[in-house]
């Protein structure tokens, strides 16, 4: 992907409430950006906006030079843009098993990815194994999995499609020590992978310190560089 993530004069509001005001931003291909800010300030919404999941009220978002369509997101995949998104809560399809959740996008875009159903399932298994999801959990519904396992399944689903953009919403929240370590190691690997542009939100100083990348703080609808604040 020759172009990274671009935010061009974008604003976003819910009714009278402005989450982001007239902001421009660029994350180069292969770059990593950490978004931070107080609880309830709109970090998750900003992440949805950057990921093209919600349309900007004004301005626009470009992923790899393409403007995401909220009504037909498959267009982005046809342009070669693959997004992996890890939600803070939920996000896994509750009527599909862990394996089916990870395999779904691979099956849905199998012709675009040049794979068949069997390879899609195999890749899903590999992605889940890499995130240390036990074989006994593969056919369980998300409701029957622990928070930590659900988070690992979410990560596996996001990474199984070999994305060029990864968005993570507080990926280490509510996890035990072992899973937190696993996620932190994974974040470092994603940061070092030049094929992926990574944006994540966090309130955890350990994540910020471990990644050592530019940090932007969301305050009153404005993005402020943490270096500038210091």
């Amino acid at each position: 992907m020759s172009q990274g993530l671009e935010l061009e004069g974008a604003s976003f509001r819910y009714g009278q409430l402005w989450v982001l005001v007239e902001t421009s931003l660029r994350v180069p291909p292969g770059g990593t950006l950490v978004l931070t800010g107080e609880n309830g300030v709109g970090k998750s919404t900003l992440l949805y906006l950057l990921g093209g999941l919600v349309p900007a009220t004004t301005g626009r978002v470009l992923l790899g030079g393409h403007e995401p369509s909220a009504s037909r997101p498959s267009d982005l995949v046809r342009h070669g843009v693959r997004r992996g998104f890890v939600f803070q809560h939920g996000g896994l399809l509750s009527n599909l098993s862990a394996l089916e959740n990870v395999a779904l996008a691979l099956r849905y875009h199998a012709d675009l990815f040049g794979i068949d159903e069997a390879i899609a399932r195999e890749r899903a298994r590999e992605a889940l194994a890499e995130l240390r999801v036990a074989k006994t959990d593969l056919h369980a519904l998300p409701a029957h999995l622990s928070v930590g396992v659900r988070q690992r399944v979410s990560l596996a689903r996001a990474l199984a499609i070999e994305p060029n953009f990864v968005f993570l919403d507080d990926p280490d929240q509510g996890l035990d020590q072992a899973t937190t370590e696993l996620v932190l190691d994974l974040l470092v690997r994603l940061r070092d992978d030049t094929r992926m542009t990574v944006v994540l939100t966090t309130t955890d100083p350990i994540v910020v310190e471990r990644l050592g990348v530019p940090v932007m703080r969301l305050e009153n609808g404005r993005l402020v560089s943490e270096e500038r604040r210091a």
Binding site: L53, P73, G84, F85, G91, L93, A105
Partner: peptide, 17 residues
């Protein structure tokens, strides 16, 4: 329930209409 659990957004993020 899919809306509440962000499942619809998750589908969109995966390029599933």
């Amino acid at each position: 329930n899919m809306q509440v659990n962000h499942e619809v957004l998750a589908l969109s993020s995966l390029g599933i209409d």
